[in-house]
Design a protein around this nucleic acid. Structure first.
Lengths: 242, 242
DNA sequence: CGTAATCTTGACCAACGTCAATGTTCGTGG
DNA sequence: CCACGAACATTGACGTTGGTCAAGATTACG
């Protein structure tokens, strides 16, 4: 089991430094790690849960499945992101979470969360800020689905994810591992799989990005950002790691 | 000026009862009321702000305008909803807010907010819960845009708003005032104005809803909910009124 | 080396957008 | 109360984007 004291994530730029008291409070919520293969549903829609998780390593997606079996991917979960917060504080999960790769989650006891937040109001405030940042990102994804063409949607989705990877130090020389398949991208941007492939071809031919063998390459970030209307996440926003 | 002590909103079912200490803390943040005509931009994208607002009476929308002048409506703001939270805690607003009708906002001093939340951790936690609820609603809107047909989108948007109105006691006999025009609905659900009208015609012919003279009528809530896949907001979730 | 998954391509089709002309509603001033 | 204009709704014709289907090529993996 990874101990909070030694957690490698916490040292990353993305996260807000914590004092000993805070690390201790979180450490007391910490339970076993959860190690699962690719394709595992870690959280299922409608489920109640007393535990919540921080993704430590690997990739996952939050998604929603409709009555007609179609799937909407709500968000990509990257290392350092939390899942299962909603069921703990609100009673039930409104979405499922599935791993795309083998993954390790850090498990935390949700029953202790309200107490910890009341005892550490500074942390509660920072957590609120993190969620406001997430809400802002969600607004932009909504705009993408409502108002953009196929190529713009795909480009936006990829550059946004790429930018998040970059902030986590997961990009090297303009490239990063990217385990999503065509279907996954399609389900994220509201298109069909075939049309996503056509959009990718277009983006590739304009040298805006390349996606091959599970690697995403963005040769000119500014150029793709301009094409998609993407504005990078401001450097300032640090996150609480619970 | 409406005093927090006398605020009519606070007494509504939707909101969590507050103790005297909390009402006092909020009262000290309270500044003048803001009374504006329809079509006023209360918050502009990119703006910094030290104040935040609670809509007391009237209607507004949160929206985002793209480079090509097109508009995405992110959400409808109803009495009791806050706006301007993000600029206060995160530095800048990523969206604009415009009134659809003459409206009254309660103005609060944002500089005092972090202090108030740290001094009232219970309130901070409840506020976090409110935001988690909003995030859940946003996920569903995303699903609507990504996976639904024109008629379903329009129906979903209308029933969702109707359900929110209902919780605020703004529905009488299956009907409520509804000041949004065709363009507004179009910009909310990611369709063209003309196509929204066709979708409305279809919904009307199926007796799922009616929209005339600024009134929204839903004769059979369950029937429309089934058609659109809408699940009502659980009764339990009460909101913090700041 | 073989099988399954995924990508690629082309043909065709449905949903939605655009344009433009006509009708309706509503608020305003006479 | 009526006349007028502006904003909005309605309708039909037509164009475009993206969906569906199916067959073949490529890649990943045991």
């Amino acid at each position: 089991m990874i101990r909070c004291k030694d957690c490698a994530l916490r040292r990353k730029q993305l996260f807000r430094p914590m004092n000993g008291r805070e690390v201790g409070a979180i450490g007391r919520m910490k339970k076993d790690d959860l190690i699962v293969p690719a394709g595992t549903d870690v959280i299922r829609e409608g489920e109640r849960g007393q535990k919540f998780y921080t993704l430590y390593e690997g990739w996952a997606v939050r998604y929603h499945r409709l009555a007609d079996e179609s799937r909407q991917i709500l968000d990509v979960i990257l290392p350092g992101d939390q899942v299962g917060f909603t069921p703990v504080l609100l009673g039930r999960s409104a979405h499922s979470v599935q791993t795309l790769t083998p993954a390790t989650f850090c498990t935390l006891d949700g029953r202790a969360l309200p107490g910890v937040l009341k005892a550490n109001p500074e942390m509660a405030l920072e957590l609120l800020k993190t969620w406001l940042g997430e809400a802002r990102r969600a607004d932009l994804r909504l705009t993408m689905l409502g108002r953009m063409t196929a190529a713009e949607r795909v480009g936006y989705f990829l550059i946004e994810t790429y930018d998040r990877l970059r902030r986590r130090g997961m990009v090297r020389n303009g490239a990063s591992a990217f385990p999503l398949r065509g279907v996954d991208i399609a389900d994220a941007v509201g298109l069909s799989r075939v049309h996503v492939m056509r959009a990718l071809k277009e983006l590739r031919s304009e040298a805006l990005l390349d996606l091959e063998g599970g690697d995403l390459i963005i040769p000119d970030f500014a150029k793709l950002a301009k094409f998609t209307g993407y504005v990078p996440i401001p450097r300032s926003g640090k996150r609480v790691l619970v």
